[in-house]
Design a protein around this nucleic acid. Structure first.
Lengths: 224, 224
DNA sequence: CCGCTAAGTAACTAGACGGTTACTATTGAG
DNA sequence: CTCAATAGTAACCGTCTAGTTACTTAGCGG
């Protein structure tokens, strides 16, 4: 009988019925990111991750060892994503003020689009960066970032647009902080100030505010 | 026999052997704050809180109902503490620039001295402010804050020291954010940037940076 | 088309955890 | 002094949860 041989790999994969290691792994990682960023590492349930991924719980241990291993994978992937997006910015092609504006608005928009990054950072810091410290793959991702900011600052100083002596790390922390605090704490802040801080128009307003704050700081003093 | 009557209340309280509702309640609340801010709401263990407080677990349910009730009590007390400290600042007696500097440095120092406030905010926002929304006692605490900032801004504008049209809420979020992000994420940021951001000197530097950023933003543009 | 390795499943388990029960001891009012 | 209300204790319980075991099935090299 011609139908007795199992279906071709392609057909099987298309129907989604059979094994597909990459797909399974990716589904677990995605589900874990959602569950862990929604509820924290201790709040996340392994069974919930498996169910969300549509995968047997055993697979989770098969691919990632244990809950911590899964968490580290989520952490590495999430950090990797933002750092690679930043590198793609190509700020050095623009004039310094425009480049800085682009960096600030990019960072702000990234936080809006990726709330999971915010939660994960909160979770990892609550644990005093214990897992990040162990990870070998994350640290090297950050040199391009400060390097890029440094170049931008130097070109701005040379053109008389920016003040001298600005520390790139300090500046980056400020750019990130102005957006991060607002987004991460928008739920409590909305209650406290009686204003819906998640409204799209409100987010735009905040973006412009952050640009203004950063550019005002970078401006050289009048008596140069 | 003269010793047959129980010791006087004062003596008993002094020896710490007998009942003391207020003391027990306070010990539980303090232990809960430590445990919950260290490990998050889901990570905190009820048994650990009881042990840390030197109290039987049953007492925790006696005074606070359940784990959530205890969490709400921690939340209310912690918010109450910072808001009352802010009100005590009396900024309106100083000239606007000095007042603003005082507010910024106070906020920064508060975050340094009270890391538990930072963790608790992160925890509550991860839960989308579900408990804060229910609390009746926290919201009214915040009107004095924005009011105070508003007065400071108006006086600065009148004296030609500050720009016009600054939104007090936006400004407060920026002041808090510049310090909050640094402190809350100092563990991951230190790893990423290869620098110990918790060093006292580094903290002082950050404080001055935040003051500079805020005052630069508030400065009126040259062509007034 | 055989046989070994990797992918996948279902049922299970030891221990942790939030919360309760049944009880005793202290305190303060009358 | 008495008694009711409150503070406090120890042991216990049902459920949840991370991780495991024992097993089946698909896929691929030879």
């Amino acid at each position: 009988m011609e139908g007795s041989t199992p279906k071709s790999r392609a057909a099987l994969r298309a129907s989604g019925v059979t094994r597909d290691p990459e797909r399974t792994r990716a589904a677990i990682l995605r589900a874990a990111t959602e569950e862990i960023t929604a509820k924290g590492l201790t709040g996340a349930r392994v069974d919930a991750i498996a169910e969300r991924a549509g995968v047997n719980k055993r697979m989770l241990y098969h691919y990632f060892g244990d809950k911590q291993g899964l968490y580290v994978a989520v952490l590495e992937e999430t950090y990797s994503a933002i750092r690679h997006a930043e590198i793609g910015l190509n700020l050095t092609e623009l004039d310094p003020a425009a480049g800085m504006r682009k960096l600030v608005l990019f960072t702000w928009q990234y936080f809006i689009d990726h709330p999971e990054f915010l939660s994960l950072l909160a979770t990892e810091n609550m644990n005093r960066a214990a897992y990040l410290k162990k990870s070998q793959s994350i640290r090297p991702l950050h040199q391009p970032l400060t390097g890029m900011i440094d170049v931008l600052l130097q070109r701005g100083v040379k053109q008389g647009l920016f003040r001298k002596g600005v520390d790139p790390v300090e500046l980056y922390i400020s750019i990130a902080g102005l957006g991060f605090f607002y987004m991460q704490n928008r739920h409590t802040l909305s209650v406290i100030f009686g204003e819906d801080l998640s409204a799209p128009k409100r987010l735009d307003k905040r973006g412009e505010h952050i640009v203004e704050v950063v550019l005002a700081y970078l401006k050289p003093s009048e008596n140069k």
